[in-house]
Design a protein around this nucleic acid. Structure first.
Length: 410
RNA sequence: GCCAGGGUAGGGUAGUCUGGUUAUCCUAAGGGGCUGUGGAUCCCUCGACCCGGGUUCAAAUCUCGGCCCUGGCCCCA
């Protein structure tokens, strides 16, 4: 027996319904903010991803060569591709651009709870706006999209300017090492690294910055920063908009391309892999040969949202089982068409079963049975049976459709 | 890449320590009987010991390797 590849999943109809349901909620949330969907290729030039994230990530990518000898990779994320597309196709479009996407990505990693080798990201990118309100919009948008799904989570918002100010005398490679420690809250390692650099005095203020939870404290620790006003404006907008968040200046998210605002979200009921969203303001376009446009965005780990939501029964549409005898079949086919034309799921027997067996089958899956035998066919009527209550009455097809419609989704 | 626990009909289980025809209630599926009104009942069928090597007269069981699953570490663009 052929098994599916490691880290991939099959989705049966019930699960797909639940996934589409959640997906639709997120789509609808961002649509209301004016974000429109884009789509990029499933695979890209390998360089697109190594330019952004370094050669090291090749270990965790699906890399292959096509028949023309091109080095390609299955996309491990979407942001780089969206920015590439912006440079290729939409550089002169009026700013700002509000784009969203829902797409599968691939990473060659050890599967765990909420981590798969093929996984789906729902995200948005805001291109060409470099203001406090733009920063705030991306955060509020992410919060809206996640809250729409019903998942419970915590939002942590930070800004890189504070940490960068403390580290401004360090080489960029040294900065990166320090940031990595802070991102992990690895204060022991931080101490050692700083000692190596003979910058031990930084340890205390860095630790205090990571631990502090108010803007005032952060300014005190990090000193005056040029972005002060922008950060204050952004948090002001968030506060006025009723977004629930906590400040956290230890969020690093890779110093290379994130430039200012950064944020992360964590689901309440997941295991080790509980981050369900990450985002921030970044500059990437210049890496791919474009202008140095300011962008911001986020990506939601869709599969983790689904794990966090657990087994929720998707709303089912009313199903009608058409039950007929041989004499009634021709009329039954036209009645089935009429139900479908009105948007109602109608299923007919395909197994050449007898009336009782058809009933038995319908009662397992459907809400109503529409019985059509010789008598009904002759009279141009149907017998509508409510399979939940057991009531049945003989009606014209149009009235039967109206009754089923009135019943609504269960 | 590392650690722990797992893998037995479509789903759920017992059996593994102590090798000896595997099995089960439930459930699902297919067929039949019956049938102008349903989840019933009766009968039948289908269906698995993750894969491969080793030990053995004999392996679901012991042993080695692999694959996969679950969780954790690492990583997380």
């Amino acid at each position: 027996m052929i098994q599916k590849p490691r880290g991939t999943r099959d989705f049966l109809p019930d699960e797909m319904e639940a996934r589409r349901n959640t997906e639709t909620k997120m789509r609808e949330a961002v649509r209301r903010w004016g974000y429109r969907e884009v789509c990029t290729p499933e695979f890209e030039d390998l360089e697109l991803f190594t330019l952004r994230s370094g050669e090291g990530i090749m270990q965790e990518m699906y890399v292959f060569e096509d028949k023309g000898g091109r080095k390609l990779a299955l996309r491990p994320e979407i942001t780089a591709a969206v920015i590439r597309m912006y440079i290729n196709e939409a550089k002169v479009a009026p700013k700002p651009l509000r784009w969203c996407y829902f797409a599968d990505c691939f990473r060659y990693e050890r599967p765990q709870k909420g981590r798969y080798r093929q996984f789906w990201q729902f995200g948005a990118e805001l291109i060409g706006a470099d203001t406090a309100i733009a920063d705030a919009e991306v955060i509020m948008l992410a919060a809206d999209a996640l809250n729409a799904t019903g998942v419970t989570w915590d939002l942590k918002v930070g800004h890189l300017a504070f940490m960068k100010n403390l580290l401004k005398d360090l080489e960029s490679s040294a900065q990166r090492r320090v940031m990595a420690h802070l991102d992990k809250k690895d204060f022991e390692g931080l101490k050692a690294t700083l000692a190596d650099m003979s910058k031990a005095d930084l340890g205390e203020s860095l630790t205090a910055l990571v631990e502090c939870r108010t803007l005032g404290e952060a300014f005190e620790i990090a000193g005056m920063i040029p972005e002060k006003e922008r950060v204050e404006q952004m948090t002001g907008i968030l506060d006025a908009s009723g977004v629930t968040y906590s400040l956290n200046f230890g969020i690093a998210r890779g110093l290379d391309y994130y430039t200012g605002m950064v944020f992360e979200g964590f689901a309440h009921n997941l295991g080790a892999e509980n981050q369900i969203v990450g985002g921030g303001a970044y500059r990437l376009a210049h890496l791919f040969g474009g202008d140095d446009v300011a962008s911001s965005g986020f990506a939601i780990g869709f599969d983790r949202v689904m794990v966090s939501l657990g087994d929720v029964q998707p709303k089912k549409n009313t199903i009608v089982g058409i039950v007929c005898t041989n004499e009634g079949r021709t009329f039954a086919l036209s009645v089935a068409r009429a139900f479908r034309a009105e948007g109602i799921r109608a299923e007919m027997d395909l197994m050449e079963r007898g009336l009782g067996a058809q009933m038995a089958h319908a009662s397992k899956s459907a809400d109503f049975a529409v019985v059509i035998g010789g008598r009904e066919a002759e009279a141009g009527q149907v017998t509508l049976k409510n399979l939940h209550s057991g009531e049945q009455k003989t009606l014209s097809p149009a009235v039967a459709i109206a009754e089923v419609k009135a019943h609504g989704a269960r």
